[in-house]
Design a protein around this nucleic acid. Structure first.
Lengths: 194, 194
DNA sequence: GTTAGCATGTAAACAGTTACATGATTGT
DNA sequence: ACAATCATGTAACTGTTTACATGCTAAC
């Protein structure tokens, strides 16, 4: 999904500024969709306004930076709802962690351990964030999405906890570095630095 | 992760042509990482060769299209393994399906049902693909990655089956279209067409 | 006095997709 | 005859990121 649709989705739920859209897409309830930067959001809102899908109202409160509050139009609403009727594109799951996992056999144990710990912390942070979002009283679709997300994340976290030993035991040859492999010069130093 | 790293990861496991890398990244064992097109793979291999991370051998078998078989160099191996020592970037999960779910309340039941059916089919296809990959005898890291992937997907599938009714019951107002909302003109036609 | 948060925007650079061009072989 | 698979490559385009520029307020 692109930034355009993200903007429409957020504005469909209520008015917002570019700044707020950024926050919602990176930290808030819309983080499942796109992780947009200012450099893509502001131009997208400009274009949506030119196309008549959103309107813009400038707010100048003294003592505060002026802000441009965007609102969706009837045409925008129609366009967005219409796109929901299309069959959704397949879910995307990308994991650099799994790339590391696939090479557990050639990585020193401490490196693998650190990667697992890091991944666990990330999932825990994601769960905490979702739980916080869940505080607001949602219902119907939004509530279902939250429950689904929490359930999947908790399951993945449980799996990691239950099976991390197996993963760590793939790599018990060298605790620091294996000099028989090329390019390991920097590795020992990195591990030593911890 | 970018196409460059994908190429190195695949070549780390063995020689391959650009064509084979494409297949592995879209259908095979590396689909967790990047979904690359020819337009990105061929230039990436060119650049990796110029930089000395891979070498290229041209194979001309009569009666077959000539192919360029790439192999990783020691420098490439070192570069790749080194990158595995970095803390992996957070996993990415993006779901258009969940965007539809979040608007279940305003979507007609048949649309929601179709979206759920479609999502279930996708997960089932992904599971089937992973099971097929699992046929090859993997061990250690790669085996762990497969088991993890299967477990997470099966869990998500189970959740969908167990909770799809709740989701469908969010939208029981209009079975086809709701004329009180703007922009629903095309919707009725779409539903009717099924 | 310095960091963090609020707030908008632009330009250059980069990554990647899409569409096109080419052509042989194998299977239906 | 037609489609699919194998196989490489380029050019134009699009979308997005990064870095920069600006400036005010509130908290520490």
């Amino acid at each position: 999904m692109n930034v355009r649709t993200l903007c429409l989705a957020i504005l469909f739920a209520g008015e917002a500024t570019g700044y707020e859209i950024k926050k919602l897409s990176t930290e808030g309830e819309y983080a499942y969709f796109v992780d947009a930067s200012f450099g893509s959001i502001y131009p997208a809102l400009d274009r949506l306004e030119r196309e008549g899908f959103v309107t813009c109202r400038k707010e100048d409160e003294p003592g505060k930076p002026s802000r441009k509050v965007y609102a969706i139009t009837d045409a925008g609403r129609a366009h967005f709802v219409d796109s929901l009727f299309d069959l959704p594109a397949p879910d995307v799951f990308r994991s650099e962690f799994l790339l590391v996992v696939m090479h557990a056999d050639i990585l020193p144990k401490p490196v693998m351990r650190r990667a697992i710990d890091h991944r666990i912390e990330q999932i825990e942070a994601d769960i905490a964030k979702l739980r916080q979002i869940a505080q607001g009283n949602h219902k119907g679709g939004p509530q279902w999405a939250i429950d689904y997300g929490l359930d999947c994340m908790e399951h993945a976290l449980g799996y990691l906890h239950a099976h991390r030993d197996e993963l760590e035991n793939c790599s018990d040859l060298g605790t620091a570095s294996d000099p028989s492999q090329p390019g390991t010069s920097r590795h020992a130093a990195r591990i030593a630095a911890e």
